[in-house]
């Protein structure tokens, strides 16, 4: 796929922007065109956050993702808001610990990953976001887990580098989870 439009949405604090940053850096390190655009409006102040990431082999026009090829959702309001915007043939990754409803569309691939539960069980309860990222890497089937450590070194701030290993584990957990 020459262009991948990704929309990640959830509550503030779930790591929506960080997950987006990881994917953006993945694109950058793979020499692709990249854009990352966070929500910064009143909705963010009310508690929901979302992030638009575009990875492309061609110059990127609008950085705004209106029709995602891939939707990652971490709460119910976000699923309800964006489920119908996903392009036919696209994919939706759902934190099924947070969202108990099912997607009623049959023209998209849906991965139900109990990311928050998996993260809690493994002792890194704040990393449900990276478990979903891991599942996305699996679904993208391009480079697998190859450059995950290098990407993480770019996105984790130096003073928090001790969190690198658990981020890697979280991504691996998502990658290996049989949805």
């Amino acid at each position: 796929m020459s262009t991948m439009n990704i929309l990640i949405a959830g509550f503030g604090g779930q790591g929506v922007l960080f997950a987006g940053k990881f994917l953006a850096y993945k694109g950058l390190l793979e020499d692709r065109q990249v854009s990352w655009l966070p929500s910064y409006g009143p909705e963010m102040r009310g508690g929901t956050a979302n992030c638009n990431v575009i990875l492309s082999d061609d110059p990127i026009g609008s950085p705004i993702v209106n029709k995602p090829d891939c939707l990652i959702v971490m709460n119910k309001p976000s699923l309800d808001k964006f489920v119908d915007t996903v392009v036919p043939g696209g994919m939706i990754l759902i934190d099924s610990t947070m969202i108990d409803s099912k997607v009623e569309r049959d023209d998209v691939t849906v991965y139900y990953v109990p990311a928050s539960k998996l993260a809690g069980d493994a002792g890194f309860s704040t990393l449900a976001n990276m478990i979903l990222v891991g599942k996305l890497l699996y679904a993208m089937k391009d480079k697998g887990m190859d450059n995950v450590e290098e990407i993480l070194k770019h996105v984790i701030p130096a003073r928090k580098m001790d969190l690198l290993d658990i981020n890697k584990k979280a991504i691996q957990t998502g990658y290996d989870y049989e949805a």
Binding site: A24, Q33, V34, S35, L37, P38, Y40, I60, P63
Partner: peptide, 10 residues
């Protein structure tokens, strides 16, 4: 504008 200020690109 706000988009240009908030977005990240290489």
């Amino acid at each position: 504008d706000g988009t240009m200020g908030q977005m990240m690109e290489p």
